[in-house]
Write a protein that binds this DNA or RNA. Sequence first.
DNA 1: CTGTCCCGCCACTCA
DNA 2: TGAGTGGCGGGACAG
Length: 465
Amino acid sequence: MSSSVHTEDSQWKNPSIYSRKDKSLGLLCSNFLKLCDREGVDTVGLDNAADKLGLCPVFSSTNPHIIFQPCQHECADFFSHVFTQNLFVVVGVERRRIYDIVNILESVGVLSRKAKNQYRWNGYSAIPKAVDLLKKEGLKDLSTASSTCHNVSNVIACNHSDVKETGEGNTSGLHKIDNRKEKSLMILAQNFVKLFHCSNVDLISLDKAASALLGDIHDPMAVKTKTRRLYDIANVFVSLNLIEKIRSPDNGKPVFRWIAWKENRTSGSDEENICRYPAAATSDESMRRTFGTEITNTIPKRCRDDSSSDLMSNGQVKRLKVAKDDELKDKNQISAEQHDERGTKDFVFGPFGPSSLPKSGVSGKENLKHIQNWEDLASKYYPQYQNKVYNLAVKIFLGATASAMLRVTHDRLDFLNGIIALMKRLKCFHLLNVTAASELFAHYVDAWESWQVEAANELHKQHEH
DNA sequence: CTGTCCCGCCACTCA
DNA sequence: TGAGTGGCGGGACAG
């Protein structure tokens, strides 16, 4: 038994192993934006985005939104140190959050919906136009509704009420849709923008904004709910550098201030206006904004299995995908190109690479590519199970733990204990029984062992050569 | 204690 | 009809 695994075991049980901030909407939004804001990106598919972000969709029968994000740390030796350095962070990011982000981004024109699951990436250059439109809309509302509403911020709320009133007492589908739409995060976000642009108020607190947007509704619960939504919106807008959070000079309370372009756009091209956004800059290249937080996981195409393939009876292992020699060679060639200083025919180790092997000449960005190769190879070792819980377990396991765990211990029991501890941390262990877990992970051990033999042979061949 | 906002239930929509 | 979408509020976390 390896004592190190026991040490890690206790760490996995630590509920405070990651910060709440790791899962923040703002961080996720930054990552999402960085993913979209790239050359040649026109359409954003939500599934694809989640995949590229390193969010590995799993098939929870209880929560269709659940997605696992392997880790917030994009370090070269992530896989090898993930356990020993206590970097293991499995972040339960929900697809649900992506919907929130997408809706808010849509409100300022950054994205527009094309079809189910598909969004068009309009980019940051679309923001000025969208905001301008909102401003005009807000001012128009102001002029037409000023007779019934007493102040600027209530105009927006008045327009809310108009919709609401037509819906009240009428349960027809159309009005239901209207009511739901009116409450949507997108509309709320747009009204939040209008508050900044159609009033003389410079600093807006979220509770005040919530009250303003609710108009005559003074229900504390409604204000609380609206405020919660505004927090989400504000976080996304902060990620976009549209607003910033500061302390009110009056009472020290947190308030938000619009920091992107605001003045009436009477002249100047769109490009000039775009450049007023702090997020944007002058050159084409730097027009792509930089974020305070880097994308945390660039590992592409994680653990996407083809669940439509033929499978055996429930809970049984269908097959273990073992990389064929030629496939490995293909990978090696790709890897060799990426690590040219190692020679064009160097053997690059996959997800189960023995820790004893030298890693000289591989660092920094190259290591990121290296990790991607690990990921590619990992997909070839990917056992497929009909049992969704098994697949869940494997996906999580495959994402971040296989090589690291087995570098810590070669003892199978120790290995299983570690996995069980991991499962407990992931709160999904109750879905598994120990026998099932043993069966599953014993397969993984076998795969790893066979791969090691294969890798050792390849290394031996290289030395002979 | 207050502000913040993650989490996920469940209703609704749509292909 | 099932998968996708998103409103909503409980309650945990952070300062």
